[in-house]
Every structure is written in C-alpha cells, then in structure tokens.
C-alpha cells in the first residue's frame, strides 16, 4: 500500500522536474556516443558557456510567468554592452559605477516595456518587437559604428576570477538562480505572479495588483538581462552594439520553455530552467565536438522549442 503511494510521489516528482531528467538523459547520451563529451574539461566548458544563458533564461522566466513575453532582451544586451564600452573606455568610470549604471539602463528598458504592456494594454509581443527595434537603433546610434575592444583589467576582474577552476560567472549564475528561486517559489510576490499567470481575473478579484506586479517583472527582467550582458561583454572582451540580437532572445525563450516554463503563464520551476540552459549548451557542445555545421544549432533549438510548445499546448488543452 505505502509502496504504491511512494511510487506516485516519485512519479509526480519526476513529472514536475522533467527537464532535469531530460538533462540527465542528454548528458548520458553524450557521454556514451559523443567522443570527449564526458571529459572534465568539456563539462567545465559547458558550465562556463551556460552561465550567461542561464541568467537570461531566468530573466525570461519572470516575464513568462505572467503570460507575457520579451522579444527585446537580445537588444537590451546590445544597448547595455555598448554603453558599458563607452563608460569604461571613453568616460573611464570606475567599474562598480559602470555596472550599476548598466543595470539601471536594463531596468529602464524593462520599465519602458512594462509601461506599454500594463498601462496601454498592448500585447507584450508587439511591444517588445517594437521596443527591440528601438533599442537596437539606440545601440547603433550610441556606438557611432565603433566597438570597444580590450576592456581594462580592473573592469574585467568583475567576471574573470576563478574558483575551483570554474569562472566566477558560474557562481553569479547560481546566485541569481538562488535569488530567483526565493522570489518565485518562496516569496509572496512569486505566489502572486503564479496566480496571475494561471488566472488573472481570479487573482485581480482576490486583491492582487496585476499591473504593478507585471511592471515589476519587466523591470527585474531588464536588470537581469543587463547583468547578463555585462558578463557576456567581459567574456568576449568586446563591447559591441550587435552583441545579443534576436538569436539571444530566441535562446533565452527556448531555454525557458525547455525548462518547463509554460508560455500561458503560471508554471515555472527555477532548477528546471537552469537545466534548460544546460541542455541547450549540451546540444551546442555536441555540434561543436561532432564538427557539424554550426548553424544547425539554431535550427535544432527551433525544433526543440517546437516540440516543447506542442507538448505544452496539448497539456494545456486539459486546463
């Protein structure tokens, strides 16, 4: 009797954390069939590569949980990257000020998105499609067609240290994941967001302030995206106005959806999101090792997210 109940508990735990299971399967397949995949160096590399995408995926999760989307994240990255370059090289501001200002820029962009979505009640995909264009235009305008290479060491130190032979960015990503987990799974705010995503009308009737909450999610997402941009800029050691772009947004959305976040809102699982980011980087690793056409990556991601979408849509039919 108790063994069948235990079985049910295990089954439902597996169901809820499916992406982590998928990750394990991916890694297992990789270790078995892809040469050198199972090496320590490769695993370290995957973790290193997955740090920034994990942060962007978590940022996207905040938006997805209320049933919205942000197609402009890639362009927020562009704007923050080039601003970073200008602040560091031209204005020669101290690193911590630069980081703070960049976060503010990200939050401001998010706030603008949030305003149009909440106050004007325009569907988020149109707002962020439009704002993405504006942001990339701004980034190009601000850059005056220059990129900034060779960023100063005191700035790069922010993301260059290594602990246990892992770059500090991995730990930043884990910190962000921890904070996000606390907010979304343990805080009242997270409860409200989940309720809004599942049933906005009922949540409003229960006194949850929809507009304020959605606005805050856009601001948080913008800030996290800016943080991600700083990490990426330091890693490639180049502040450029075309860092990120539409590929970036797509990767973030794909990682989130593979990580079990439903596009209709309400369902989110931070550990699974991190797993999602790791999965897509595993795929990239396979492509690299097997020397496949690099561009296959985007196509495969697309098919992966398509499968996840179909599964999600079919599951939601029962809702």
């Amino acid at each position: 009797m108790s063994s069948s109940r235990n079985k049910n508990v295990v089954l439902s735990a597996v169901k809820q954390n499916a992406p982590i299971v998928y990750l394990i399967i991916f890694v297992a397949i990789g270790c078995l069939f892809v040469p050198n995949f199972g090496s320590k160096a490769n695993f370290l590399n995957i973790l290193r590569q997955a740090a920034a995408p994990a942060v962007s995926c978590i940022a996207m999760t905040f938006i997805l949980i209320t049933g919205n989307i942000d197609l402009s994240t890639g362009y927020i990255v562009s704007l923050v990257s080039i601003s970073c370059g200008i602040m560091v090289k031209t204005l020669e501001l101290p690193p911590y000020l630069v980081i703070l200002l960049c976060l503010l820029i990200g939050c401001a962009a998010g706030a603008a998105n949030g305003l149009f979505v909440t106050v004007c009640e325009i569907p988020s995909f149109i707002v962020t499609l439009g704002s993405g264009m504006i942001l990339t235009g701004l980034a190009q305008l601000v850059s005056q067609n220059t990129s900034y290479h060779d960023l100063p060491d005191n700035f790069r130190a922010f993301a260059k240290a290594e602990i246990f032979s892992l770059p500090i960015t991995v730990f930043y990503a884990l910190l962000v994941a921890l904070l996000a987990w606390i907010i979304l799974h343990r805080a009242v705010f997270g409860r409200e967001l989940r309720a809004l995503g599942l049933n906005a009308q009922a949540s409003r009737m229960a006194g949850i302030k929809e507009k304020k909450s959605v606005f805050i999610t856009f601001v948080i997402s913008g800030g996290l995206t800016a943080f991600c941009s700083i990490l990426m800029t330091i890693r490639v050691n180049c502040a450029q106005p075309d860092l990120g772009g539409s590929n970036f947004s797509f990767e973030a959305i794909t990682a989130a959806v593979i990580g079990g976040t439903s596009l209709l809102g309400g369902r989110v699982n931070i550990p699974c999101c991190v797993a999602g980011a790791l999965i897509i980087k595993c795929i990239e690793s396979w492509i690299n090792i097997l020397n496949l056409n690099y561009y296959l990556y985007q196509a495969i991601l697309g098919i992966a997210i398509l499968i996840a979408l179909i599964a999600d849509a079919l599951k939601n039919r029962e809702r």
Binding site: F116, C120, E121, I122, I126, V127, L129, G130, S131, G132, M133, I134, T136, G137, L138, A139, Q140, L141, N145
Partner: peptide, 23 residues
C-alpha cells in the same frame, strides 16, 4: 541615416499606432 536608426523610428511608430489603436 543608417538603417538601424530607421529601426528606431519604425519601432516607435509601431508602438505609437498600436497604442492609439488599443486605447
């Protein structure tokens, strides 16, 4: 003007028109 600046104008235009439409 560079194409990207065109994007800036276009993006703003779209948001403006849609906002007016929705309101």
């Amino acid at each position: 003007l560079h194409p990207y600046v065109q994007n800036l104008v276009l993006g703003s235009l779209i948001i403006f028109i849609v906002a007016v439409n929705v309101l």
